Each structure stands twice: as C-alpha cells, then as structure tokens.
Amino acid sequence: MHHAQSIARLITELGKLPGVGPKTAQRLTYHLLNSPRENSLALSKAIREAVDKVTYCSVCSNFTDIDPCFICRDEKRDKSIICVVEEPGDIVAIEKTREYKGHYHVLQGIISPIDGIGPEQLKVKELLARITHQPKDNLEVIIALGSSVEGEATSMYLAKILRPLGIKVTRIAHGLPVGGALEYADEVTLAKAFEGRIELF
C-alpha cells in the first residue's frame, strides 16, 4: 500500500467521479489535505448538505432543494411551452442563453437499449400527465436532446407519442455537433438552435 488507509479511501472515492482518473484523484486528495482545514471541511459540508437536501422537482424532475423548483414556481414563465431535456445540467446550459422563457421537463436519461434503458425508465409518464392537465390549444413541446443515435431515437419516440395528442411538437435545430452533448454547447449555438427549431411529424 502506497498511502495511509484514509488517504487511499479518499483517492478511491474521488476516482469514482466522471472524468477523474487515478492520478487526478490523487492530486485532488493531496490538494484537499494541503489546504486549510476549514476549506476542506466546508467542501465536505457542502457535499453532505446537497446530498441531504437536494431532490427532484415533483413537476419537472429538475434538481431542487425547494419543491417545486424555482422555475416551476415562476409565474412569469410561459406555461404553454415545455422544453424536454435529458438531464438537469441541460437546463443550466439553456438558461445561460437567456432566450428561453418557458418551462422544462427532465427525462432523467435517454432511450439506450444497449444499456437496458427504455421509455419505462425515463420520466415519460410524468410528461404525459403534465400535458393531460394543460390546455392543448397553444401548447408546444420542444424536444431539446443531443444529436447522438440515442438522442435521435428518443426524440422520434417522443414525437410519435405526443403528436396524436394534438399538440405542437418541435425540436431544436442542430447547429450542435453530431454526437455532442447539450450541456457542452455554448450559449450562442444553443440560442440559434432554439430560434431554428423545426416541427416534428
């Protein structure tokens, strides 16, 4: 063993984070141990507080520490538009554009048969329930999923089940790179993608 047990454990836990390899985990561990004690404890407290308090919004499935989330509670937002995204991080990316003023619905994933993820594992039933309780006249559902094979398949599936309900179903234009994740797109690209959205048939 090259490290004390407690250090090795911290390296192992940090190494479980996405994009963090063994060397990065070790560097982060050493940084935390060399930092002032109060800084490291503040990080530990912030993690525990987030884990204890953050849950999913009962309306849109976004992360929140107050239910419903601040977006769903905002009376100024347009209730006639629901933007469907894959994960909470996508909402942050879209909000940075300051162009979109509607509501959201987080699927908590995309259809991926190879990973055993079908529509049943996603928040599709919840989306349908929301739509059922809203006036259909001016309702628009914007599908804002990435352009990967799985994202495309999920978009087509959603369009297929939403169109018969008599609502407008559009998807954002793909000025986004094929296979690219929404959360990594810059604000201008995302804003243009919303402007150029097309109706799904």
Rank of each mutant, 00 (worst) to 15 (best):
residue 1 M to K: 06
residue 3 H to W: 12
residue 11 I to R: 06
residue 12 T to Y: 14
residue 12 T to A: 13
residue 12 T to N: 14
residue 14 L to W: 02
residue 14 L to T: 04
residue 15 G to H: 02
residue 17 L to H: 05
residue 18 P to D: 01
residue 18 P to Q: 02
residue 19 G to C: 04
residue 22 P to C: 03
residue 22 P to T: 04
residue 24 T to M: 00
residue 26 Q to W: 08
residue 29 T to K: 06
residue 29 T to H: 05
residue 31 H to S: 03
residue 35 S to N: 06
residue 37 R to H: 07
residue 38 E to D: 12
residue 38 E to G: 00
residue 41 L to I: 09
residue 44 S to G: 09
residue 47 I to S: 00
residue 49 E to H: 08
residue 49 E to F: 02
residue 50 A to H: 05
residue 52 D to A: 09
residue 56 Y to V: 08
residue 56 Y to H: 13
residue 57 C to L: 08
residue 60 C to T: 04
residue 64 T to C: 13
residue 65 D to W: 07
residue 65 D to F: 08
residue 68 P to W: 09
residue 69 C to T: 11
residue 70 F to W: 00
residue 71 I to N: 04
residue 72 C to M: 05
residue 73 R to T: 13
residue 74 D to L: 03
residue 76 K to I: 07
residue 80 S to N: 10
residue 83 C to Y: 00
residue 83 C to K: 00
residue 85 V to Y: 07
residue 86 E to S: 04
residue 87 E to D: 15
residue 89 G to F: 05
residue 92 V to D: 11
residue 96 K to T: 08
residue 99 E to Y: 14
residue 99 E to I: 11
residue 102 G to Q: 09
residue 104 Y to G: 04
residue 105 H to P: 03
residue 105 H to I: 02
residue 105 H to S: 02
residue 107 L to D: 12
residue 110 I to D: 00
residue 112 S to M: 03
residue 115 D to M: 07
residue 116 G to N: 05
residue 118 G to S: 14
residue 121 Q to A: 07
residue 128 L to I: 15
residue 129 A to Q: 15
residue 130 R to K: 14
residue 131 I to L: 10
residue 131 I to K: 07
residue 133 H to V: 01
residue 136 K to F: 13
residue 136 K to H: 15
residue 136 K to M: 10
residue 137 D to Q: 14
residue 138 N to Y: 05
residue 145 L to M: 02
residue 147 S to W: 06
residue 148 S to Y: 04
residue 152 E to Y: 04
residue 155 S to Y: 00
residue 156 M to T: 15
residue 157 Y to F: 10
residue 157 Y to E: 05
residue 159 A to Q: 12
residue 159 A to K: 11
residue 160 K to E: 13
residue 162 L to G: 10
residue 162 L to I: 09
residue 163 R to E: 13
residue 167 I to Q: 06
residue 167 I to R: 02
residue 168 K to F: 03
residue 170 T to V: 09
residue 171 R to W: 08
residue 173 A to E: 08
residue 174 H to L: 10
residue 176 L to Y: 00
residue 182 L to Y: 12
residue 182 L to V: 15
residue 183 E to C: 01
residue 185 A to E: 12
residue 187 E to D: 14
residue 188 V to S: 09
residue 190 L to I: 12
residue 192 K to I: 10
residue 192 K to M: 11
residue 195 E to R: 15
residue 197 R to F: 07
residue 197 R to C: 00
residue 200 L to P: 06
